[in-house]
Amino acid sequence: MNAGRAAAIILTKEVRAEFRARELLNTTLVFAFVVIVMFSFAFDPTASESRRFGPGLLWIALLFAGSLMLQPSFAREHANDTLDALCLAPVSPFSILLGKIAANFVFLTVCEVVLLPVFAVLYNVSLLPVLGRLVFVLMLGTFGLTITGTVFSAVAAQARMRELLLPLLLLPVLVPLLLAAVEATAGLLADTPELQRTWLEILVGFDVIFFTASWLLSDFLLEE
């Protein structure tokens, strides 16, 4: 079986499991929504301030939500030792990882689709004129977040205190991604919207570097 097909099967399995339980998506959505609302109480931004702080707020909410949502990705397999069974399947470890990354990417994208309009309404930001480019930035950022988050969730699943550990492992590594994503989004929401090349390059660089690294290291990550 080739890697792509195996990954697609894992993806289907993850989506089906999530569709049956519907735990992860609901929790993450409510959490991200609460962050967005709390922010308004903490800073009480005026209209112009919310345009200035909006991009940062959006990405902080997504990163926090992601670091909570990705945690069960491998920890859930530990509950019934299903990871061993998964690793026994005659497919490459990378396709298992790829399937998981794809599934998490889908889950986070669903969250974003719901959150984005809410965010736009609550903070009076008009997203429609720049929607295409904004989606592009969101996809690049979400992809980087899911690659590192999925790999680190496999790492954290082996440790004690894993629920607390994933954000600690993940957030410092995401500093370049956060900077680039926030600046690119801020450029799009400015009075004269523009998509800055440098920040796009950093986002693409982040995605490419960590995607390659997880491809190279997947054998070690899932060997046990």
Binding site: V151, F152, Q158, V175, P176, T198, I202, I209, A213, E223
Partner: peptide, 25 residues
Amino acid sequence: AVFSAIYGIFLFLDVPLVYFSIRIW
């Protein structure tokens, strides 16, 4: 040993990205 090695490699790959992005910032 295995998992901290994997995490350590990811960290080191992140260092240049951190430097570049913050420098532009």
